[in-house]
Write a protein that binds this DNA or RNA. Structure first.
Lengths: 124, 124
DNA sequence: GTACGTGGTTTCCTTTTGGTAACCGCAAAA
DNA sequence: TTTTGCGGTTACCAAAAGGAAACCACGTAC
């Protein structure tokens, strides 16, 4: 019995742009984080307060992932107690139009669902 | 002991537009479905083939939810075997710019991650 | 010494999600 | 009569996600 190479040569991933981008935007609160950071840099506790319902754990996980994907920059300031500032990287800035578009649709959805008396439409 | 009315008068939901919109776009494959439907109306089996990896169950659930939220219109055609056509409603059309913006970022992410040799960035 | 604030981490738990596979009803075709 | 295609539905299951609460290190303030 001989070990053979597979017939298919592991066809290149050919990532779908939509999935590519959604893999960054996915997960609870991620768009909100980007939204707030698009305003100005923020500290951990600021983001926590801004978003309100997010847990520390999830916020940590999100920020770590965004950092790993190059969307967010993390900087420790030499203060005491040390504060940490998060801001959108150059790459992160590219997401702003997408987030803005989503927010924009959100506004229109609100108007429409108000007209139609669909109480809030779908909620999470 | 007297039953009292609550102090807070059930403050209005005050839905965040971002969450509002993401509650529609959320869930695996949803943006892809909208993307394909934004091209032209499609049948169930077409969408299934277009997206490829989606299961019938999830596709059903997504379409039902999109229909319920008024984004997608479902029409049964009087053919045999009966075919069902899905298309974006007027409200669904509003989502096109947002999806387009996301796709656009996806393209740029691809270029950047190619440059940086981050192999695909984050995958789902 | 003790408490406090910052920015987390860790553990545990419940809920949600999404996939697989089997099944279904109908009408037409073979 | 059996099969085929369409458009699903259902039951079951494993994995992932996300929340709560406890914990942690560090330097400063009291």
């Amino acid at each position: 019995m001989v070990v053979r190479r597979k017939n298919k040569v592991a066809l290149p991933p050919e990532v779908c742009p939509l999935r590519q981008c959604m893999s960054i935007l996915g997960g609870a609160w991620t768009p909100n984080i980007i939204w707030y950071l698009s305003g100005r840099p923020r500290r951990f506790s600021e983001l926590r307060a801004d978003i309100g319902e997010i847990s520390a754990k999830v916020l940590t996980v999100r920020l770590r992932r965004l950092e790993a994907s190059g969307v967010v920059h993390r900087e420790v300031m030499p203060t005491s107690p040390p504060t940490v500032e998060y801001r959108l990287s150059e790459l992160g800035q590219e997401l702003k139009p997408a987030i803005a578009a989503i927010v924009d649709v959100g506004h229109r959805l609100k108007k429409i669902s108000a007209k139609k008396n669909v109480p809030g439409g779908l909620r999470t």
